[in-house]
Design a binder for these strands. Structure first.
Length: 415
RNA sequence: GGAGAGAUGGCUGAGUGGCCGAAAGCGGCGGUUUGCUAAACCGUUGUACGGAUGCAAAUCCGUACCGGGGGUUCGAAUCCCCCUCUCUCCGCCA
């Protein structure tokens, strides 16, 4: 949710910023028009209510007073009904407005205009043709795609034996890094969540089609623990002294991946269910940009520990997500595809989610409340990390070296 | 699944039709006292939305808000209905 005052007072600027992210501007105009009408009527109704409050006596009124007040009340009631409809439409329109990109975000049309910030680690030179991760996973009996298709469907996977253990080892390694070295508190939240939570972080109402819904209920399967962790703070006021609040969770994430037909159909890059370690921070507004870069470093650290080559890119205005004000993606090297693939996305939402979710902090000096900033990132997507390990650590005999950092968790050196 | 109790401000907790935006306490903020800290004492302290003034910090005006929604009434935290959630007991169960 954007600050209504900014939309009104600087509508031309807002219009331009939203154009940069290909936002259909007629939605903004719809909002502005609804807002004007609503405020106009609001003043009328408030004036009538004021009259009623002034005229209503403190004790039992005369019959004549009662009669005229009754008439006034009835008038208010019907005008209030009209006003409520208008207010509802303003709120609905406001929920469809995306975040305004931060001024430092490069203007661009699509992912082709994203900017590479840096590359870390040199891709290994192979003396043989590197196999794709799914071939390795199948031949080493780490993942059983056929069984997954049988018990669920396509875009699911069954991890087995060392494959399941590797997934678990990665989860433990990542959570240990973030809780022990980076100061995050670990959570295990529900993966079944309600629509208020999804509206709070911005998945609803606009992206209903990307989500699994439990039939006949208000329950959904969470697409990311960002939703659960951020909503832990919904409708709360946090003392400034307690900021930043750092939360992490490993959860299964569920996405319909509608509209991605033909994309990444083999392997575990794009699944309906996948594990992800999420990092969420609640920040003081003055600190959020610095914290975002720190959080990005927390995610990078996992790849450094695993000695996987990666790069960091900054998303352009045409590619950042609906709720995000600025996003950096981390992409890990996939030798079989000769390319980097997304493994983490780190964003600053500024006060966008905090406004939707009513997450505020109390300023120490003024003791006023104000919206805080939310930032989050993956740290990391577990399945994609596992896939990257299979590819980057494969040997010419088809086996896979266990990365040094995982040996204590795996208690073996070879897959 | 059955029976009962409850939901009030940052927190605890009074309040059964008008004197209630709401007692009291805690916490917060300001002050007095003090070498400093603590204690004590005094004062102050809700949020959202709209409007006005101001460069702004802010100030003033209005409206609403006692879990959510609807109803009764001239007037609702208070009475009625529906929903959600929490707690207790019973049943069932990983």
């Amino acid at each position: 949710m954007l600050d209504p005052k900014i939309i009104r007072d600087q509508s031309d600027w807002v219009r331009q910023q939203l154009t940069h992210r290909h936002y259909p501007v007629q939605y903004l105009d719809a909002y502005l028009n609804a807002d004007v009408v609503w405020r106009d009527r609001l003043q009328d109704v408030d004036a009538l209510k004021n009259e009623r409050n002034r005229l209503t006596p403190k004790s039992k009124p005369t019959p004549e007073q009662q009669a005229s007040l009754k008439q006034l009340s009835d008038t208010i009631k019907s005008k209030q009904d009209e006003l409520s409809v208008l207010e509802e439409s303003v709120k609905k329109a406001a929920l469809l407005l995306p975040n305004i990109p931060h001024e430092s975000v490069p203007i661009g049309e699509s992912e082709d205009d994203n900017i590479e910030i840096k590359r870390v680690g040199d891709p290994r030179i192979f003396s043989f043709e590197p196999a794709p991760h799914e071939a390795i996973a199948v031949s080493r009996q780490l993942i059983d795609f056929d069984s997954a298709a049988k018990i669920a469907g396509s875009r699911f996977s069954v991890y087995k034996g060392s494959g399941a253990k590797l997934e678990r080892a990665l989860i433990n390694l990542m959570l240990d890094i973030h809780t022990q070295d980076h100061g995050y508190t670990e959570f295990i939240p529900p993966v079944v969540i309600n629509s208020a939570s999804l509206q709070g972080t911005g998945q609803l109402p606009k992206f209903e089609g990307d989500l699994f819904k439990l039939e006949g209920t208000d329950y959904w399967l969470s697409p990311t623990a960002e939703v659960q962790l951020t909503n832990l703070a919904r409708d709360t006021i946090i003392d400034e002294d307690n900021l930043p609040i750092r939360m992490t969770a490993q959860t299964a994430c569920f996405r319909k991946e509608a509209g991605s037909y033909g994309k990444d159909i083999s392997g575990i890059i794009r699944q309906h269910q996948f594990n992800k370690i999420e990092l969420v921070q609640l920040c003081h507004p003055d600190q959020s940009m610095a914290q975002l870069h720190e959080l990005l470093g927390h995610a990078e650290r996992v790849l450094q520990v695993l000695k996987l080559p990666y790069r960091v890119i900054q998303l352009c205005t045409g590619d950042i997500g609906f709720s995000s004000g600025i996003t950096f993606d981390i992409e890990v090297w996939f030798p079989s595809q000769n390319t980097y693939r997304e493994i983490s996305s780190c964003s600053n939402f500024f006060d966008f989610q905090a406004r939707r979710s009513m997450i505020r902090y109390r300023d120490k000096l003024s003791s006023k409340v104000n919206y805080l900033h939310t930032i989050n990132g993956s740290g990391l997507a577990v399945g994609r990390t596992l896939a990257a390990i299979l590819e980057n650590y494969q040997r010419d005999d088809g086996s896979v070296d266990v990365p040094e950092a995982l040996i204590p968790y795996m208690k073996s050196e070879l897959l």
